[in-house]
Write a protein that binds this DNA or RNA. Structure first.
Length: 290
DNA sequence: CATTTCACCTGGTGGC
DNA sequence: TGCCACCAGGTGAAAT
């Protein structure tokens, strides 16, 4: 399931392959649930715009888009005295849900089942959104009418130690549930919650507000380490995650507890235990995690 | 208000 | 072999 490292990998891959290209036209499916902006309006709004940059914010992929017409473009450029780059005046926001993928393909590549969006680009390539389980969402924002996209919570790789401690202060819910709450931290899902708690030696059912300053310091460091290593390895290919080129990641081979129920702990050989927490399968070592 | 539960989805798995 | 109940989980709304 795409979490921070997987979304980061996809955003970087898409950026590398489509930055600077213009959208010729867009095709969208008509399954209403997939679209935060109605598909017809979205397709119309995207056509003709240049993709200026693609980046990750939390678990979202944000495509910054330039103005539609050359006149509009000149107007925006002249407003920003001396700026060389075109300023974005719209955004296309992609959330991958559980099974979504964003692929840069040739137009001849077979169209996968559950393809919900196809953007034809000036280079001849296509940007495709595929999502079998349909938990993903597509949204268009015109920046003169709507604010630019902002994640709800803090970025786990940017937050300071002090702010990290402050996030959990007084909270009664489990640390696992807190890590999954996107209003606190953006980008952590089930895999990296379990893996970071193992590396920090903290039981997932501990109350967030009861953790000591030292424990939260360890947790923050474990998160940084595990997220950065996962990004380096192109994410975890469990379920059907692939990057923008359709290739697998490698971090699934580094999982120490996630989906290793009953297998020996890599550190102490105690069988990994699985419980349900926050409505999610939760994996931990009963000996290493206190 | 804080927290928990549930519905939304489909493909893959395991039991019979 | 075929069928089906069941499970996976990100998110937001509803319930507690």
């Amino acid at each position: 399931m795409p979490e921070l490292p997987e979304v980061e990998t996809i955003a970087r891959g898409v950026d590398a392959r489509v930055k600077g290209q213009r959208i010729l036209d867009a095709w969208f499916s008509s399954l209403p649930q997939t679209f935060k902006t109605p598909p017809r309006r979205q397709a119309k709004a995207l056509a003709g715009r240049e993709i200026l940059a693609v980046r990750r914010m939390g678990k979202h992929i944000v495509c910054d888009l330039g103005p539609k017409s050359p006149e509009e473009r000149d107007r925006v450029i002249s407003r920003s005295a001396g700026a060389k780059a075109t300023l974005p005046d719209a955004q296309w926001i992609v959330h991958l849900g559980m099974t979504g993928s964003l692929l840069a393909t040739t137009p001849k590549a077979p169209v996968a089942p559950h393809t919900h969006a196809r953007l034809r680009l000036t280079s001849g390539m296509e940007l495709r959104f595929v999502d079998p389980r349909r938990f993903g969402r597509l949204e268009f924002r015109a920046l003169d009418r709507s604010p630019a996209f902002e994640p709800k919570g803090a970025e786990p790789l940017k937050i300071s130690p002090a702010a990290f401690v402050q996030l959990f202060r007084g909270r009664q819910l489990s640390i696992k549930a807190a890590l999954l709450n996107q209003w606190l931290l953006s980008g952590i899902g089930n895999i990296y919650a379990d893996e970071s708690l193992f590396r920090a030696g903290i039981r997932p059912d501990r109350r967030a507000g009861q953790l000591t300053r030292a424990e939260l310091g360890r947790l923050r460091e474990a998160l940084r380490q595990v997220l950065r290593q996962a990004i380096r390895l192109g994410g975890s290919s469990v379920s059907d995650y692939v990057d923008a080129n359709g290739d697998d990641g490698f971090f699934q081979f580094e999982h120490r507890v996630y989906q290793r129920t009953g297998q020996p702990c890599v550190s102490c050989s105690t069988p990994i235990r699985r419980i349900e927490l926050a409505g999610r399968g939760t994996h931990y070592c009963p000996r290493c995690q206190k």
